[in-house]
């Protein structure tokens, strides 16, 4: 029997396969097993609820992960998306059922933004519903596909149904848009995507992430925390989110109410005779006094607005007076 690769097919293919399998064990199976065994869920994190798990299944089935990553790299460019991801962030991921394996949430392409910490940026369920119904209704120029099949159209929505205030240009001719169970599950999952602080480490990087370049601090806080609802040019979304351009509170000489609303939020208030369908979230826990002063000034001096500006001390004073 020849010990020559050129002549002995058993030897040749045996060696080729054995080498491949050996390398596979060393480079793939052992490390995979090792990370699986050696990562614990972060303390302070929680498992997904039953509803959020159903939402994750829709996230996978609809292929959201081909456009969205869920991994923040330890690089300056990823700062806007949160703190760097840690192995523990994924420790709870398991196969969905006997047919399907662990979802590949980390992703390889960012056609859309990273979603690891999206609930901190987009905490409003209303925004998420409208966005899923048609992304262009809230973000001009978005290329994310629409998911109208996660919604139903009802002439007269029943009690307890989640009505989605789609802006008129994007709403169906007749009837009201309501969120199906699937949409509610998916949004519940999206709202669970909030990074847990690393034990002992720094707090999660704030979403603002002060990008470099000629952008002022106020503009960058606005882009990260306000623009999704009030529009990057302050034009809002008709019937859902009020415009900041020419808004009575924003252009008022006394800034107290402006600061108060940004700190503590607002709901069910008519603005210029319009009742807006969504709510304004509070920002007192996410933004510092300095950041709030910066963003308030940004609104007061942009898009043709020109109202007196404020300081961090003004914000601190109103914060101390407290509550809505």
């Amino acid at each position: 029997m020849s010990l020559n690769f050129h002549e002995n097919h058993r030897l040749l293919y045996g060696a080729a396969l054995a080498t491949f399998v050996a390398l596979t064990v060393v480079i793939a199976i052992v490390p995979a097993r090792w990370v699986q065994e050696h990562t614990e869920p972060l303390s302070g994190s929680r498992a997904l609820t039953e509803q959020e798990r159903r939402g994750l299944a829709i996230y996978v089935a609809e292929g959201c992960l081909y456009c969205h990553t869920q991994q923040v790299r330890p690089l300056p460019v990823d700062k806007p998306f949160g703190r760097p991801s840690a192995p523990g962030d994924y420790a709870r991921l398991r196969p969905q059922d006997v047919w399907r394996m662990t979802p590949a949430l980390l992703g390889t392409e960012r056609t859309g933004p990273d979603l690891s910490n999206v609930a901190a940026r987009q905490p409003s369920d209303t925004w998420n519903y409208i966005h899923l119904y048609n992304p262009r209704a809230v973000v001009k120029g978005s290329v994310m596909q629409a998911y109208p099949w996660l919604f139903a159209i009802r002439e007269t929505p029943g009690p307890g149904e989640v009505i989605v205030p789609v802006p008129p240009d994007y709403a169906p001719r007749g009837g009201k848009v309501v969120a199906t169970q699937a949409a509610q599950d998916l949004v519940a999952y999206l709202l669970s995507l909030k990074q847990t602080p690393l034990p002992g480490g720094e707090l999660p990087e704030q979403a603002a992430g002060a990008p470099s370049g000629a952008v002022t601090p106020g503009a960058s806080v606005y882009a990260a925390h306000c623009a999704s609802c009030h529009g990057s040019n302050g034009e809002g979304v008709p019937g859902v989110f009020p415009p900041m351009k020419g808004d009575p509170v924003v252009t008022a000489a006394d800034p107290a109410r402006h600061i108060h609303i940004v700190l503590f939020g607002l709901e069910h208030a008519a603005i210029n005779g319009v009742n807006y369908a969504a709510e304004m979230p509070a920002h007192k826990d996410e933004l510092s006094d300095g950041e709030i002063a910066a963003v308030v000034d940004h609104e007061r001096t942009s898009w043709g607005n020109s109202a007196p500006t404020v300081t961090a001390a003004d914000v601190a004073r109103i914060r101390k007076q407290g509550g809505p």
Partner: peptide
């Protein structure tokens, strides 16, 4: 599936 929970999946992927 035995080594593909959590980040194990990513290594294999």
């Amino acid at each position: 599936p035995w080594y593909q929970n959590g980040l194990g999946e990513t290594v294999i992927q």
